[in-house]
Design a protein around this nucleic acid. Structure first.
Lengths: 196, 196
DNA sequence: CATTAATTTCAAAAATCCTTGAAAGTTCGG
DNA sequence: CCGAACTTTCAAGGATTTTTGAAATTAATG
């Protein structure tokens, strides 16, 4: 299981994120590999990971490939060494943003397509009418969240942090804004919808 | 597979959410059951679901039990009928909020505990110092998101919608607020941290 | 309190997903 | 172009997770 070269703390961290990964659509192995690469103080090559986590070499190779497909790894080469060294981005925000964006592309966007198709189907029975309303409600919510995320992604870590700290107080701010806008005569700019 | 009593559209919807479910830590079956209950125009009992989706009766029973543990179902009884009839909440926002909150409790809170424990471990080597910084960065981000979500959950569907439409523009609003506050002399109220 | 209708449990079978080692592929220096 | 140093592919085997049917349980009714 655990290699001699990992501290108990590191192992606990890695192990936990392996478990979490397996609940989030990536395998245990891939979760552990990323946790290891994330905490490592130095970039790691595939063999390092093989030894530290005692997985088979091919398993590590596939895991790294998957992590790359999620755009979660940076890598570098060294003069006189053909092996690729991997590390995670320094900024945790960037990691979460990438992860969320990749899930958005892989899961949310296709879901919106399916819903859009379903919404175009003819409604013959009264039940169909009801299905339509239910699917429309779901489409609206997912579509809005999707647009919101794309929008929010542009913000810097600092601005995001500030907004999060604002939390539910933002609501008051919003009301204040609306009062202000009604004074200045400005109008809202954004309406959410996606091309079919 | 598909029962005679489900329209193609309904089936497509149900099937897709089964697939999505399996990528989100719930089984295909449970995803399909919820999709069916969600679009149904009338509350369904376990046998209805068994026939419509052609799963075994016990599979449906277990699926319903799991969905109840996620607090995603409403149920009712009818006079002269001993069977329990299930339906999903009318409001999609409520469904998403419940889902997110349940994941927060089941995954985010335990993750914060593990991280907190790891952060308390003694740091003996320079690597340990680095692990600590990395885990702290992750803890800070997750903890802040957790607090933010708890906070945001209080808002009504309307306020949430308004905030989402505001999206990245909120940033400007925030800056405007800061300028205003510096004039009025008010201070920020909320700091995020959770008791150990 | 026996009967019947409904639900739940549970261990085995089925299906899916993960891991591995062997073999094939790639890339570089000479 | 060869061989060394790595990496990737792939089919088989192993694990884990899902699904099922039979049996047990619960609850209401005459």
């Amino acid at each position: 299981m655990q290699s001699e070269n990992l501290s108990d703390t590191a192992w606990r961290f890695i192990h936990h994120f392996g478990e979490m990964g397996s609940r989030w659509g990536i395998s245990r192995t891939v979760g552990q590999i990323y946790a290891l690469v994330y905490i490592s103080h130095v970039p790691l090559n595939a063999d390092d990971i093989t030894h530290l986590l005692s997985f088979s070499r091919s398993n590590v190779s596939m895991g790294l490939k998957e992590l790359q497909s999620w755009r979660l790894l940076r890598s570098e080469f060294r003069p006189g060494d053909r092996r690729e060294y991997f590390k995670a981005p320094d900024d945790v925000w960037e990691i979460f943003r990438t992860l969320a964006d990749e899930r958005r592309r892989r899961e949310v966007v296709p879901t919106l397509s399916v819903l859009r198709e379903c919404l175009l189907d003819p409604k013959v029975t009264p039940e169909d009418e009801h299905f339509h309303r239910r699917m429309q409600a779901m489409y609206d919510l997912i579509s809005m969240s999707n647009e919101w995320f794309i929008d929010i992604q542009k913000l810097s870590a600092e601005d995001l942090t500030a907004l999060m700290h604002l939390g539910a107080h933002a609501q008051k701010l919003l009301h204040a804004k609306n009062r202000l806008l009604s004074l200045t005569g400005l109008t809202k700019t954004n309406e959410t919808d996606e091309a079919p």
